[in-house]
Design a binder for these strands. Structure first.
Lengths: 156, 156
DNA sequence: CAATCCACCGAATTGAATTCGACAGATCGT
DNA sequence: ACGATCTGTCGAATTCAATTCGGTGGATTG
C-alpha cells in the first residue's frame, strides 16, 4: 500500500470503468504494471468490488430515511436476527449496527412517504424484538466517492 | 426502464466490471444491444457512475461512526455551509441532511477511537453553528449492493 | 561483490468494445 | 387496412484494450 496503490484506489473510486490504459497514463506507468497493481489490490482485498451507482429517483424510490431502531432483549441472537432481517428487505439500502442510544440505523429508500409509513408499521412495529423506533427523513445525501488512507501508509 | 434495463442495473450494481459480453450472455441478448442499453442508462442518468469499493481497514480507517449534529440558527446559509464543510473533510464518508431531532448525520471513518474523539473536538465542537452533537460507533455495516425499482416500472 | 528477487516495462497475442448496415415489430397517419 | 416511419435488436467487421510473458535494472541479501 504505497502512494501508487493509493492513487490507483482513488482513481478507481471515482471511475471504476476507465480503461486500464487511461489509468496507467494518468499515473505515468505502463499498462501492464498498472494491471498488475490493480489485480494485486483486488487479491489483497483492498478493493472489494466494483459497483454501479444509480439514481434512486429513476428507480421510483425518491424518498429516503434513516430509521433508528431499538431491540430487546440485547443479545447476539436478537441483534443478528434483526440485522439479517432488515438487510434482506428490498427497501433497505444499508444497515448500521451501532452502539449508543440506538441499536440500529437503517437506511431505506421508498417510492413515497406513505410507503415509508407502511414500511415502519408492517416491517418494524410488528416485530416483537423492536421496542422503539423513529425515523429521520433524508433531505440530501452527499457521498464522498474518494476514501483515502488516513495517517501513515505502510510501504509494503 | 423496462425489466431488461432493471436487470442490467442490478447486474452492474453487483459487478460493474464484468465484460459487456458476459453481461449480454447472462441476459440473453446480443453484446451490441447490451452496450446500447447500458449507454442509454448512463445517458438518461439512471446509472450515475461506477465506483470501486474499498476495505476501510486496509486504508487504515477501521473505526466508523455516525455523528448526529444540530446546528443553529436553522437556515439555508448555515445548513449549506456546514454540509459543504463536513463533506470536504477527509474523514467523512457521507453526509445526510435530515429532518427530525437532528439536522445532520455524518458517517465518518478514522484510524482509531482517539482520532474520533479528536475529530469531534476539532472539527465539530469548534464550529460556532454546531450547538450539539453525539456519536454512535458503528459495529457493523451491511450494504445492499442491489437497489431494484419498487412498484411499477414505466415502460418508456 | 555476486546472487537473488521484485517491480516494472514493452512487444505480441488474445479478446472485448464499438461501429454500422440490415432487419423486424410496433406505431402513426391516412 | 395499408404503407411509411420509427425504434430496438442483431451480427459481422473493425478498432482498441486487456492480458501474457520474457527481458531489464535497481534493490536486497548473504
Amino acid at each position: 500500500m504505497d502512494e501508487l496503490d493509493s492513487a490507483i484506489v482513488e482513481h478507481l473510486q471515482r471511475d471504476a470503468r476507465q480503461t486500464n490504459r487511461e489509468l496507467a497514463r494518468k499515473l505515468g506507468i505502463a499498462p501492464s504494471t498498472c494491471l498488475e497493481r490493480v489485480r494485486a489490490l483486488r487479491n489483497r482485498g483492498v478493493i472489494t468490488g466494483y459497483h454501479a451507482a444509480v439514481d434512486l429517483r429513476a428507480l421510483n424510490r425518491p424518498v429516503q430515511a434513516l430509521l433508528s431502531v431499538r431491540v430487546r432483549p440485547l443479545g447476539r441472537e436478537v441483534i443478528e436476527g434483526f440485522k439479517r432481517y432488515a438487510a434482506g428487505l428490498p427497501e433497505v439500502l444499508s444497515v448500521f449496527v451501532v452502539a449508543g442510544g440506538e441499536d440500529f440505523l437503517v437506511h431505506v429508500a421508498v417510492p413515497d412517504v406513505d410507503q415509508l409509513h407502511s414500511f415502519l408499521l408492517d416491517r418494524f412495529s410488528e416485530r416483537p424484538e423492536v421496542v422503539d423506533h423513529h425515523s429521520s427523513v433524508i433531505h440530501q445525501h452527499l457521498s464522498n466517492p474518494v476514501t483515502s488512507p488516513l495517517g501513515p501508509i505502510g510501504t509494503g
